[in-house]
């Protein structure tokens, strides 16, 4: 089963998910080609030349920054030429902009947020979750000889070592870009750097109201913890951007991560699942956060917070 992996990069740097995709591709068996679509793809060749990669396809495009039409046209041309059985992309913001379009246009099998893959009777079986990550599903692609899969970051260990893949230059197709990169804007740095804290007390939508936030600010101070949160509290303007843990926020790895009222959505877990010790309090015994927590308590977070106040 031949696999085409599309390398991801931002501002000249390869994103780690690329090497994880190589590992995922190896699970399917067969030759693995990695496409590098970039302003100067040769600068990224060495980084993707890892164990399990047979060929590196370089496509030089304008501009270097991701643009949907440009990348989609390049990948489409590679699919037509190489006829891979599977195309693996990261479940990332860039891929969300063109992966589903490839499937719709070319009539391919499709699934996203895939975290396990195998071959069965010549076809691909993918695993993903539904309903707030509370149930998993095996997904199949009947009638499709080719699939596009968006793979959940950090589900596979990155491939390393190796080297010596064949490098082939491929010409970029001419395309009119209808959504053009103009600039980068970085998130403003906050008053604290949550990525260096040893102990994070992290609150989620379970705290209910803005008025309740003060209680947890005080609790964090008593416990000697730094306060962080899930995204909805930042969206609502209750917490500053710099305190958000997760895919679109900060990746943290404290010694202790104490999560109160956080469900454990995949984008939240992406930012904290490698923490030293994860302790989760949630009133829902089926909350997905318990799948990554080392210690869990099914309880009302306010009751537990009140008791913690007495102890610290």
């Amino acid at each position: 089963m031949s696999v085409l992996v599309v390398a991801e990069h931002v501002r000249g740097e390869l994103r780690p998910v690329t090497l994880e995709l190589v590992s995922a591709a190896r699970d399917l068996g067969g030759p693995v080609a990695v496409a590098v679509v970039a302003g100067d793809p040769s600068a990224l060749v060495e980084a993707v030349d890892v164990e399990g990669v047979d060929e590196i396809l370089t496509v030089a495009v304008e501009p270097d920054a991701f643009e949907t039409d440009v990348v989609q046209a390049a990948v489409e041309a590679l699919i037509a030429e190489r006829e891979p059985d599977a195309v693996l992309l990261g479940f990332t913001v860039d891929s969300m902009g063109y992966g589903p379009a490839l499937a719709a246009k070319l009539g391919l099998g499709f699934a996203s947020d895939v975290f396990a893959l195998r071959r069965e009777d010549g076809g691909v079986v993918a695993e993903r979750s539904f309903y707030g990550a509370k149930v998993n599903a095996e997904v199949e692609f009947p009638g499709h000889e080719r699939v596009v899969l968006l793979v959940r970051p950090t589900s596979w260990a990155p491939s390393a070592g190796g080297g010596g893949a064949t490098v082939t230059e491929v010409a970029a197709p001419a395309v009119q870009s209808r959504a053009r990169h103009r600039d980068w804007v970085e998130v403003e740095a906050g008053d604290v750097d949550i990525t260096t804290a040893d102990f994070l007390l992290s609150v989620g939508r379970g705290i209910g109201d803005k008025e309740n936030l003060e209680q947890f600010e005080e609790l964090a101070e008593r416990m000697g913890a730094t306060l962080s949160s899930s995204r909805p509290l930042v969206d609502a303007g209750w917490m500053p951007n710099a305190r958000q843990v997760g895919q679109s926020g900060k990746t943290v790895k404290p010694k202790v991560y104490l999560a109160l009222g956080i469900s454990g959505a995949v984008q939240h877990l992406a930012g904290m699942k490698t923490s030293g010790t994860i302790v989760a309090v949630n009133s829902d015994p089926e909350a997905a956060i318990f799948n990554v927590a080392h210690y869990g308590a099914v309880a009302d977070l306010f009751d537990v917070a009140e008791e913690l106040e007495k102890l610290f």
């Binding site: 391919l108 099998g109 539904f130 149930v135 009947p142 799948n291 308590a297 309880a299």
Partner: peptide, 27 residues
């Protein structure tokens, strides 16, 4: 483009060690 073959409750794996008891004991 895809079909669900089977849904299931994810295996709990090693999972979390659950802290039981009253809120005071949990704290």
């Amino acid at each position: 483009a895809a079909r669900v073959r089977r849904m299931f409750v994810p295996p709990r794996g090693e999972g979390a060690e659950m802290l039981d008891g009253e809120p005071a004991a949990i704290a």
